[in-house]
Amino acid sequence: MSPYLDKLLEINGVEKNFDIPSGFFAKQILHALNDITLTLYRGKTLALVGESGCGKTTLGKTILGLYPPSKGSIRFKGEEISRHTPSQRGALQQKMQMIFQDPYASLNPRKRIETILEQPLHLHANMSKQMRRKSILSICEETGIDPASLQRYPHQFSGGQQQRIAIARAMILHPELILADEPIASLDVSIQAQILNLMMQLQKKYHMAMLFITHDIAVVRYVSDFVAVMYLGEIVEYADKETLFNHPVHPYTQMLFASVPTLHNHIVKESLQKQNEIPSPINLPQGCFFADRCPLKVATCTQAHPELATYNKGHLVRCPVAP
């Protein structure tokens, strides 16, 4: 691993709460993100892993500016961006782009592909028609889109092709940071590898930072350089890939790994049958959020909320009890 890491995005103490109206006048608070501190480096992929409701998608959208954080700071290339909406961020915004989970839903069904690809250029670049056309053809070549199909509509493409178009749209402005939210989850298995390879290729070529949000642990193993495991809005473990996979420390991480089916393991066994449900992000428990389901639980776990502490160099764990 290269010792030189160039910081591109710094997230510090970010919190995000949503107001949920409940009943006529009452309001409840949904704590989607609690105290998130992360750094993204140029040319490196950080995988954000967690199950549904852990807040990983919310974090991605907060970074992008679709939600303002309730607390904390987000600095992109040194500039504070958390208080600005995407349209207020001006030129900086084109340097970070997002790829969504559902490729069909992320493309306007009434627009031709060429129009969709041209849009970012219209918004951010000052180009003549010929230059735009050139840009489009060049990105089509890089992402494997047939230029003859530029006049078609999204529904005329397969899921994999639609995701290529979404990737092309994200790449056409040559961003420095890509946020990918479950980019292959809704694709057929034999296509997933195609798209993953494409993304990694592009990342390498343009030395981009990538935040890869996913619930699929096996994919994490393949694409990531660093991994952050999220649970109920918090990071519970953070390390580089090899460390995390060889030596997962947090009990939740271990539970996750033990539950992932592969062709060769045997996860269907009695020992995994924990009956306790995940707490609600509206009524977060006192102390450690994972305590109720944790095999290592002791008395102190329900009293004090654990901090994300250094377990080893570069390896952070939110569990004072783990050996």
Partner: peptide
């Protein structure tokens, strides 16, 4: 073409 959990695969070979 499937990424595996067991060890880091060097390459995923997609079906074209």
């Amino acid at each position: 073409s499937l990424p595996t959990l067991e060890k880091s695969k060097k390459h995923l070979t997609p079906i074209p």
